[in-house]
Design a protein around this nucleic acid. Structure first.
Lengths: 192, 192
DNA sequence: GAGTTACGCTACGATCAGTATCGATACCAG
DNA sequence: CTGGTATCGATACTGATCGTAGCGTAACTC
């Protein structure tokens, strides 16, 4: 493994390690006030950091939220070759993460903003959607449109539930969702 | 049937019938610019109506959008007693409507705003969610939590697809979704 | 100590939701 | 035709928010 970061230190005052604090403050604020109510001033205040400092690292509120979601989800690394297990663990991971306070609201908010903001759409697509799609497609060996439908069903359902009720989906419903999805995605080959 | 609207005309200048024009302009603007980009000034201009006139009828942007969605969906009236047919037609209706230009973005936008705006949450819940839930529950004779999961899966999936791609779900995927949902919701009784 | 860069702070420009006000307009009752 | 009433359009305004500019200070390297 070659060193990815050459030790050449840049001159000047080094950046303070504020990412973790800002991410936590962001999720906390979004959880309490919703995406719209979570203003950059409030997030900065909650993090104990100047707003200008945040804007030096993230180009917009949407970009901050996307990074926040990425940080919360973490890398997706399928550990199995068993299709049932891959699908099941992906659903459980999604359910657990989307159920975390603030994450669903953050997700939905950045989603809506991306519709009218091409730059944010690009960030969302490149950093969030593409990697997870590729990882799943790679693990499952399925055609893209099947994996896309899988993602739509799982993430869409979980987000809709959180948006409707404000509470995470109960385990019984997650089980039902899993059962339903498994029947569809472990059945015979793609009929289309 | 007794007359619901007694003919007592209120004094003063009658209101102009602008609802249809405003709804059309709203959906058109949301389709072109997204929920965030569809400002009330732009919607009013597109409708050829003063912004103040819109605010005389709808208490907020969110309330206007909710009415707009209601108008687009229309009343839900299950015409069959066959469970498969009820579910199938409900999914097709949802897919067709959510695929209409602007509707998905309007839906998602009002959803996000409702999280931080209790008044809007109330409007959304009372006028949109409750009626459709009741109608479906009545037609299917299923426990509430099953119908809620059905709605989450169908609407959530369709909205997520529209948000991701900006284009309506293709028929083949709607068929796959229908097939998957039918297997789950026409199976043996609620296992929970 | 000189150079460079990050930080916090304050102020600012632009945009948008929603309100206030005012003259003009349309309808009804007498 | 006249008075009363409520709507319409237009303009101006308030307050909140995103994002930026400028400045003095702090931290780190050479």
């Amino acid at each position: 493994m070659t060193r990815a970061t050459p030790p050449a230190k840049p001159p000047g005052r080094p950046r303070a390690g504020i990412d973790a604090v800002v991410f936590a403050a962001t999720l906390r604020t979004v959880h309490e006030l919703g995406y719209t109510g979570a203003t950059m001033d409030r997030i900065a205040a909650a993090a104990g950091v100047a707003k200008t400092t945040i804007y030096r690292r993230w180009e917009s509120k949407g970009a901050l939220i996307v990074d926040c979601i990425l940080d919360a989800f973490g890398p997706l690394r399928p550990e199995s070759t068993d299709r049932v297990e891959i699908l099941t663990s992906a659903i459980r991971l999604a359910a657990a993460k989307i159920g975390e306070p603030g994450l669903a609201a953050a997700f939905a908010g950045v989603f809506v903003d991306a519709i009218s903001d091409p730059a944010l759409r690009e960030v969302l697509s490149t950093r969030l959607q593409a990697p997870y799609l590729a990882a799943l497609q790679d693990a499952l060996g399925e055609p893209e449109h099947r994996v896309l439908l899988f993602i739509d069903v799982v993430v869409g359902t979980l987000l809709h539930r959180m948006g409707m009720t404000g509470a995470p989906m109960v385990d019984a419903d997650v089980d039902a969702l899993t059962e339903m999805v498994l029947r569809q995605f472990t059945a015979s080959d793609d009929p289309a």
